[in-house]
Design a protein around this nucleic acid. Structure first.
Lengths: 167, 167
DNA sequence: AAAAACTTTCAATAATTACTGAAAGTTTAA
DNA sequence: TTAAACTTTCAGTAATTATTGAAAGTTTTT
């Protein structure tokens, strides 16, 4: 396998992975492209490489910037803007963990807490609802605490911790 | 908040959470309904509670069974089949981790390994491709090993481990 | 072996989500 | 202050994904 094939394969795999966890294909592909690009890319560059429209590129770049994993960069003498991705895999993982906690896990935890703390009228169905949602609440809460822990640690804590658990 | 409101809230939240990680709404809602139901439910029961069609119910129940988190059950004297969910939160987490590893992470790891091991022709772009995909490969591989570790441990290892990391 | 009770399949359709492209908006240069 | 270079917005449209419902399939009972 040579360069072009490997590149295409990576971009398309990363793209379909995205849809699997709530990021759309274009957004994931733009990230993939920037992730492996040694140079900042302009909007033109991205549109051309991925065959997507200007509007699509603009909207998805904005989302990547919101996620904190892509940055704008301006080259001296050039009028247009260029984009680069965060290149450190640890930092990428931290940002993703942080955003997912905020967008997905926190709201669910809130509902689970509300639901699991309704007054128990003693009926079987209410008891079951409380018991089962409480179990989910505790699991989700632990997982979220762990994620936040990761987000606030120094950069290579993730790898070190995973390694410790694995062996 | 009383029973019915809490129940509806849980089912709809769990349902939208599902779409966020690649499980469709009906599937997640059926799971939610069974998760908090003290009794096994028939297909009729599920259709009626969630206002979904027979076909939809049948297909999504099958998927839940494939995921290993819902079981068929037959009541003596009754002709139709009943369904119950796995009720242990640890076991639920294990099954989900196992399936996600198999369906999502493993295939990505395979591509990352392939892409990150192409011959390096010494060019800047090839070097960058190899370096960046290798970093992702290592992260994904560690995460997957950890998940498998979880899957094969005794049931309350997850909580114990998370607790240890958290404090 | 026929009928009744129930489940599964799948083509058609509905609902959702993503994408385009041109117009409006913004910034810089002349 | 006008024009050129570039970016963003968003209504319309395309693509994708989920759902229905009726027909076909299966199992159990009589």
């Amino acid at each position: 396998m040579e360069y072009q094939e490997a590149k295409d394969k990576f971009i398309s795999t990363w793209g379909s992975l995205g849809t699997l966890w709530g990021i759309n294909k274009a957004m994931a592909q733009i990230h993939a492209l920037l992730w492996i690009s040694p140079e900042p890319l302009s909007m033109e560059d991205i549109m051309e490489e991925l065959h997507i429209s200007r509007g699509n590129t603009s909207m998805n770049l904005r989302q990547l910037i919101d996620w904190g994993i892509v940055y704008k960069e301006s080259k001296p003498g050039e009028r247009k803007e260029f984009f680069v991705s965060e290149k450190d895999v640890q930092e990428l993982a931290r940002q993703v963990a942080k955003e997912r906690s905020r967008r997905e896990i926190k709201p669910v935890i809130k509902v689970l807490r509300e639901v699991s703390t309704i007054p128990n009228d003693g009926s079987k169905k209410t008891t079951e609802l409380i018991q089962q949602t409480k179990a989910l609440y505790e699991l989700a809460d632990h997982a979220d605490t762990l994620m936040n822990k990761i987000v606030h640690q120094e950069s290579n804590w993730i790898t070190k911790t995973l390694m410790k658990l694995i062996k």
